[in-house]
Design a protein around this nucleic acid. Structure first.
Lengths: 211, 211
DNA sequence: CTAATTTCGAACTGTTTGATACTATAATCG
DNA sequence: CGATTATAGTATCAAACAGTTCGAAATTAG
């Protein structure tokens, strides 16, 4: 009685489903959606062609699954980074640094599956998913800003929604630069500067005078 | 003697080369590089298949030509926007607004050929071109900041290079959001806010105190 | 040990795609 | 007007590709 749940009847699989999805992420990430052939997935995922269709479905289905897995992982890590016990500036800087690190990792493709690859996929469900993911990211940062207000780190009239979308815009910009080959070091420095940009106190009263 | 320059010998072309390139831009822009087939280009450019190969070369060559044409047009317009006679804040805001408008134009695909499509093309020359284009964009904004210092709009110690890369990062972020379907109105508002963000005076002395 | 069940691997099939050859057409030149 | 030149349109070819079929292999149930 090694396992309590009965092992499935037939021949056991020679691949791990979760691991195969991780591999699929890498394949799509490095080659884009249209650039990937089924053979690429067969080779990259270590799953035989018929099993691939039987277990995962066609290319679109595999991509959607990879996308969801990627977004879930990244979202969770980003939230961890944002809400770990530290000051607000370090939270925001950590969030941006994390984005840069993920986008410049050795061994993986540069950039981000969600930002560099998925937007090109001409598919309604992909678009819907991306929109909600983007909104979710901004909402996460916004919540962190609100926590900052509660903690007294920033004044109550801090424009949380605006600053949150600015933070995520900058994150997107950094990620795109990563894709194009800007070195990690440069981007990490820019991440720090961006955190300062959105947070350092400014003279409110001056407002939009002519500059 | 209708034309002074002798018309070429043989049968005249049924297409305008420049217009064909413009059409190619649209095709690549909406479908991505790998998503475009030669038939798409034949249909979209209004050029017969053999003429296409004879005049433009293969898909990669057509893409490079479209990319250069697109970048040249966009770069020139961006510079016009930045250096038209107006205050610094309006120049920067105008630059960002222009990016948003181009990325949300009706009739064209959303987003930007340089930022949403080209980075996925696995080609050394494309990468090199993109890097230099990105650097050129930031340099343009930086020059505008320097002009702003000369004009006394911002203090001489204004971090021109840093702010320039922040402006272009935000522009990239706005463009990506455009691709994902964020409405133009929202993005235009965010463009204005971004101009304020990088320009509004701040209390320098406070620096990186804990927030 | 045999039957049933599930997966694996190789081979197959119809379609799409990139690229080219061939013939017809439209212009200039002498 | 005929020769020359360059493009247009059709047809074609080989390679790549998506998706399926089929027999062999591996495991459990009885």
């Amino acid at each position: 009685m090694i396992q309590n749940t009965a092992r499935p009847r037939g021949r056991p699989r020679s691949f791990d489903e979760t691991r195969a999805v991780e591999k699929a992420i890498q394949v799509f990430w490095s080659k884009g959606f249209d650039g990937v052939t089924i053979d690429d997935l067969v080779a990259g995922m270590g799953v035989g062609r018929p099993s691939l269709y039987a277990v995962f479905g066609d290319k679109r289905a595999i991509f959607l699954r990879a996308l969801r897995a990627y977004a879930e992982r990244k979202g969770a890590s980003a939230a961890r980074e944002l809400f770990s016990p530290q000051g607000l500036r370090d939270s925001i800087a950590g969030f941006l640094r994390y984005n840069v690190e993920r986008a410049t990792e050795k061994g993986s493709a540069r950039g981000c599956l969600l930002e560099c690859v998925a937007p090109l996929v001409d598919d309604a469900e992909v678009r819907r998913f991306l929109q909600s993911t983007v909104a979710g990211g901004a909402a996460l940062v916004e919540r962190r800003f609100r926590d900052g207000i509660s903690a007294g780190d920033i004044p109550p009239d801090f424009p949380v929604a605006l600053r949150a979308s600015q933070v995520t815009d900058i994150a997107r910009g950094l990620t795109m630069r990563a894709r194009l080959g800007t070195p990690r070091k440069t981007l990490l420095k820019d991440a720090e500067e961006a955190a300062d940009l959105v947070l350092l106190p400014r003279l409110k009263a001056i407002g939009k005078q002519k500059l």
